[in-house]
Computed example of a mutant assay.
Amino acid sequence: MNTQFISIPFQPSLAETMTMLKIDPEMEDEFCDVYEECIAVARPKAVFCLTPVRQEQNETVIGEERFRSRIMQVNMQKVGRAFPYAVSCGRELYELAQRKDDPLERWWVDCFSQFAMREVDKEMTRVLAETYRLGHTARMNPGSLPDFPITCQRALFRLLGDGAAKIGLELTSTCLMLPYKSVSGIAYETDAVYENCMLCPRENCPTRRAPYDAAMGSATYHLSDAGSGAEETAQ
């Protein structure tokens, strides 16, 4: 298995950070100490690997793991390779947040951690595209839709081997990731436009990347309701 790791510094300027977090200028002195702590330890990380993909009846086999997801089966019908991945703000920022007793300071660190995670995700996307000469890519993320439930995290972590542990990630008994500011999924090259959000009816979602398409679930995936009708999936 070809596992690759990415670790980058994340050191935005104080002014940039205050803008990102919408810090009131009157609170700059109070915020400055937290900012200095964050940039001193911030080291967001990512891990990904290249795995073959094949279809067997109603299952998509990625590496040695089997997934019974109608959406995945349709999306990856013509896909021969995929890239399981995990992206994290890093254990350093997570542990800094846990040490904060002040709720506001902890919220600041959590927000900074979210931005750090997004930055290393961008770097991973760039490395993937350059290394494997990828065109347009799409992603599927465990827990984003009922058809691909969060329990699929277990199979995804198995695909990464000890890669997740090496970047400080752990999976709880309920399949949540620690650090919290982390995301995992399976990326693949495709000509189709796909976002999990297209099948999710949740309103007022702050991370929505595409509008909900009410007809897409039945028209494209033959689901009784967009994002529903899930079969039992790999665990």
Rank of each mutant, 00 (worst) to 15 (best):
Met1Val: 06
Thr3Val: 14
Met18Pro: 01
Thr19Gln: 13
Asp33Cys: 09
Asp33Glu: 14
Ala40His: 09
Arg43Ile: 00
Ala46Trp: 04
Leu50Asp: 11
Val53Arg: 01
Gln55Thr: 13
Gln55Phe: 01
Gln57Gly: 01
Thr60Trp: 00
Thr60Gly: 04
Ile62Asp: 04
Glu65Arg: 11
Arg70Glu: 06
Ile71Ser: 03
Gln77Asp: 14
Tyr85Gln: 12
Ala86Glu: 10
Ala86Ser: 14
Ala86Met: 15
Ser88Leu: 07
Tyr94Pro: 06
Leu104Ile: 15
Glu105Val: 09
Trp107Met: 10
Ser113Pro: 03
Ser113Glu: 02
Ser113Gly: 03
Glu130Pro: 00
Thr131Lys: 11
Tyr132Pro: 00
Leu134Ser: 02
Gly135Lys: 03
Thr137Met: 14
Thr137Ala: 03
Ala138Val: 02
Asp147Val: 12
Asp147Gln: 02
Asp147Asn: 12
Phe148Val: 08
Cys152Phe: 05
Ala155Phe: 01
Leu156Cys: 10
Arg158Asn: 15
Leu159Thr: 11
Leu160Tyr: 09
Ala165Gly: 15
Leu169Tyr: 03
Leu169Gln: 09
Thr172Tyr: 06
Ser173Met: 11
Thr174Ala: 15
Thr174Ser: 15
Cys175Ala: 06
Cys175Val: 01
Leu178Pro: 00
Tyr180Gly: 13
Ser182Phe: 05
Ser184Arg: 06
Gly185Arg: 07
Ile186His: 04
Tyr188Leu: 04
Glu189Gln: 15
Ala192Asp: 12
Ala192Val: 07
Asn196Gly: 12
Leu199Gln: 04
Pro201Leu: 01
Glu203Phe: 02
Glu203Cys: 07
Arg208Ser: 12
Ala219Lys: 14
Thr220Val: 14
Tyr221Lys: 08
Glu231Trp: 10
Glu231Leu: 15
Gln235Val: 15
